[in-house]
Simulated assay, not measured.
Amino acid sequence: MSEIAEKYQKSVGQVVLRWLMQRGVVALAKSTKPERMRENVDIFYFVLDDGYMDKIEELDTKESAFFDHHDPEMVEWFVERIGLIMPIERVNGIRRFNERNINQINFAKTMREAGLSIKTLKDYVTLVFEDDPTTIPTRKDILGEAINTLNEKVKEIVDARDYLQWKIDNYDSHMIESENKL
């Protein structure tokens, strides 16, 4: 990357941003430093030739530098590591999941799908693991917030579905004319 950056008299970051742009990937570069902001804008004033585009492509190993979010073992490790489930027993380094572990993983997955942030979910799980009856009202409040979030999502989906159904029902009288104007 340094060699390519030198050839174009750009920074490695600029080359990466330009490479992404030329591949049609929208990259959101975040900086508060004026010199970096200028560099980010400067990517529109040069073009990487095909040879360098291919060289950079060859660097892509198609694997995450952090972890594979599609690998169930890695996700389970992460969920356990941040405290969303109780520690899992290991025998010779291999996790031995019990029914409670599986239920905790499924619960965490469901709550994330419901829109709960990792922090809120961790707060909830911490209260559950404390097994203190005085935390029940707080736990119920957290679950109530999850229901409210889901209800908002359901309303948005129902509104979108109803709008699409209206378009289908009124296709001949409204949509053909509208599409011709596009």
Rank of each mutant, 00 (worst) to 15 (best):
D172M: 02
D49T: 02
Q22V: 12
F97V: 12
I157M: 09
K122E: 13
N106L: 06
E179C: 06
I118S: 12
L59I: 05
S11C: 06
L48I: 02
T126N: 13
T135N: 09
N148F: 08
H70W: 02
P34L: 06
N98I: 05
K155N: 13
K140S: 09
L182Y: 06
E6T: 01
F107W: 05
L182F: 09
H174V: 15
V25W: 06
Q165K: 10
N170L: 04
F107E: 09
W19P: 03
E145Q: 14
E63Q: 13
Y52R: 00
A29C: 02
V16F: 09
Q104N: 07
R95V: 01
K119T: 10
D68R: 09
K30G: 13
D141H: 04
K119P: 07
S117I: 09
G51K: 11
Q14N: 12
L127W: 07
K140L: 15
V15G: 04
T149G: 05
F66M: 11
K155W: 06
T135E: 03
A108H: 03
V125H: 02
G51W: 03
E145D: 15
E76Q: 02
N103I: 02
F44D: 12
A5Y: 00
R18M: 03
L48Y: 00
V12W: 00
H70R: 04
S31Y: 07
F78N: 15
V91P: 10
N101E: 08
N92S: 05
E130Y: 03
N170W: 08
Y8S: 02
R100Y: 03
V15F: 01
T134E: 08
L182E: 12
V91D: 14
